[in-house]
Design a protein around this nucleic acid. Structure first.
Lengths: 187, 187
DNA sequence: TGTACATCAGTGAACGCGCGTTCACTGATGTAC
DNA sequence: TGTACATCAGTGAACGCGCGTTCACTGATGTAC
């Protein structure tokens, strides 16, 4: 072969990274393959050496970005109330609000996923289960509800809050939403 | 004129209704004007007698569907814990889960709105303020946080929970999310 | 060591298609005189 | 009362454009003998 070993894998990874960012920023339908390939430093013809179709690319982008989110959760040390507070502060921050392209895919892409093919939704459901399992273990002991249910509520409030704040044109309104949700998730 | 009085307004309303449903079901980018006009029983050429552009249509669809959601909130009688319980039971139900086209636009379209033009985001922000005002008045007295903050958390958990549940391909997983959020929002 | 051929990641033009928007036209009714 | 013209919601073909996908080709390297 005329390329060093690992070259193809590296190219595939680069396409996936760029596509994943563009999908989150613009939505899946508004992002064209020519644009993705240009961002990866190639022309569009080469795409099909790496992926079967645009929907396969979307599926793999979901998979890799959700695994990245899971990685962040696992990397954040500790548990209990303190862990929750720190996780919420990071997730519901102005930085995360502004950084759609490299942030959690859930607030940016969940509606696109809900409209996607069954295989993509399966990838999403599997990753969501891993995320809720991880969170359930980190939940504080107190509370009437089982940890897993509190974990779901934490995810829903965080994802919903960040997403709603991103829609608001007014930064003050966005801040108000982020602050309220940050306080609510730690009780 | 060759059409009875009110005919044009009625046509405009019909286009808006159909567009609003299609946007929620398929996303704004995946919904074409020919499709919208066909759903309204017309051909595409007539569209521009009623709206300036597709983005204007999107903006008006957001406005009308968010006003509808606000209408449902206002119509639901009572306040306090009971009101919250009943609102959550309706919002986080299997019926609402399955009925994307005629349900609340927030879980279906917020990412599309976040990517839209400033005018559309302004319409969204204004409606969101009306919704949180309405909810804050209905919140139970108890709790450490101000009613408005609890209202934001209620919205975020409800919208986030419904959206996340819609993404899951597995109905059991979806039910688990809905149940957990329903219990969490009433404390 | 030299030569012929195979491999295959990537190029770039081409395909059919549906998009948002424009526009000349239709035809039923209202208005002017 | 009758006729000529204006109005305007809606039609349907056309426009330029970018999409997802295909495909003949390139050219550097590996392999066979």
């Amino acid at each position: 072969m005329r390329y060093p070993p690992g070259h193809k894998e590296e190219t595939r990874r680069r396409i996936l990274t760029e596509a994943s960012a563009l999908f989150r920023r613009q939505g899946a339908d508004a992002t064209g393959l020519p644009e993705v390939m240009k961002a990866a430093g190639m022309t569009v013809g080469g795409f099909y050496r790496h992926f079967d179709s645009k929907s396969t690319l979307f599926r793999e982008a979901i998979r890799s970005s959700l695994q990245r989110t899971l990685g962040f959760l696992r990397h954040n040390p500790g548990r209990g109330r303190q862990w929750l507070q720190s996780a919420a502060a990071r997730y519901l921050s102005r930085e995360h609000l502004a950084n759609v392209a490299h942030g959690c895919p859930l607030p940016a892409l969940t509606p696109d996923i809900a409209r996607a093919d069954p295989e993509s939704r399966q990838v999403y459901a599997d990753a969501l289960r891993e995320i809720v399992d991880e969170l359930a273990q980190r939940m504080p002991e107190d509370g009437d509800l089982p940890p897993r249910d509190r974990a779901w509520a934490f995810i829903a409030t965080s994802v919903g809050g960040l997403m709603l704040a991103r829609g608001a044109s007014d930064p003050e309104l966005a801040d108000e939403i982020l602050n309220a949700c940050r306080q609510a998730v730690v009780d």
